[in-house]
């Protein structure tokens, strides 16, 4: 396999991961925006760009769905999606790297994801500690690892350059 093909293949793969990660972040954000009765702080962004009125109108429709959605979708799945997204980004940046720094960044995944929950438990961060959030975050990290490792395992010879 020539190196240019390996390079293009890796570039395409990492692009896919970035898109997947972005979609996961967006999906998690939409859950908060559309289905959470509480208004997240990032609603301020919408005020700044002047689309808050439109947002409230949309939420009036979507919040009616809140009562029929399972609680784990509304309150926990976003955590899993964001954990998946962060895992994907970090692994796509560092997998295949020979630098020792990669272990620091790999470690940052559980530290960041579970650390937020621990800080909510101790009351140092606003929010509610929830075991479901821990579970979904773990699922998100696991799926992120599986996604990257399966793809990389299949393409391992191409990455050696």
């Amino acid at each position: 396999m020539d190196k240019s093909f390996n390079y293009r293949s890796n570039y395409f793969l990492k692009s896919i991961y970035i898109y997947m990660s972005s979609l996961a972040v967006l999906a998690g954000g939409l859950i908060y925006i559309l289905f959470r009765p509480t208004e997240p702080l990032f609603f301020n962004w919408f005020s700044v760009v002047g689309i808050e009125n439109w947002l409230y109108t949309v939420r009036e429709e979507s919040l009616s769905v809140y009562s029929i959605l399972p609680q784990w979708i509304v309150y926990s799945m976003a955590s899993g999606l964001w954990a998946f997204a962060y895992t994907l980004i970090v692994l796509s940046i560092w997998t295949g790297s020979k630098s020792i720094l990669k272990y620091f960044w790999f470690l940052s995944i559980p530290v960041l994801v579970f650390g937020f929950e621990v800080l909510q438990l101790t009351g140092d961060l606003q929010g509610t500690f929830c075991l479901n959030d821990i579970l979904w975050s773990a699922i998100g990290i696991t799926i992120g690892f599986i996604t990257v490792s399966v793809r990389y395992r299949q393409n391992l010879p191409r990455l050696k350059f």
Binding site: G28, L41, F42, A78
Partner: peptide, 15 residues
């Protein structure tokens, strides 16, 4: 990436 995710996570807390 870390900064973006940390900010999104904090900004997602409800008031």
């Amino acid at each position: 990436a870390l900064a973006v995710f940390a900010y999104v996570a904090i900004a997602s807390f409800g008031v």
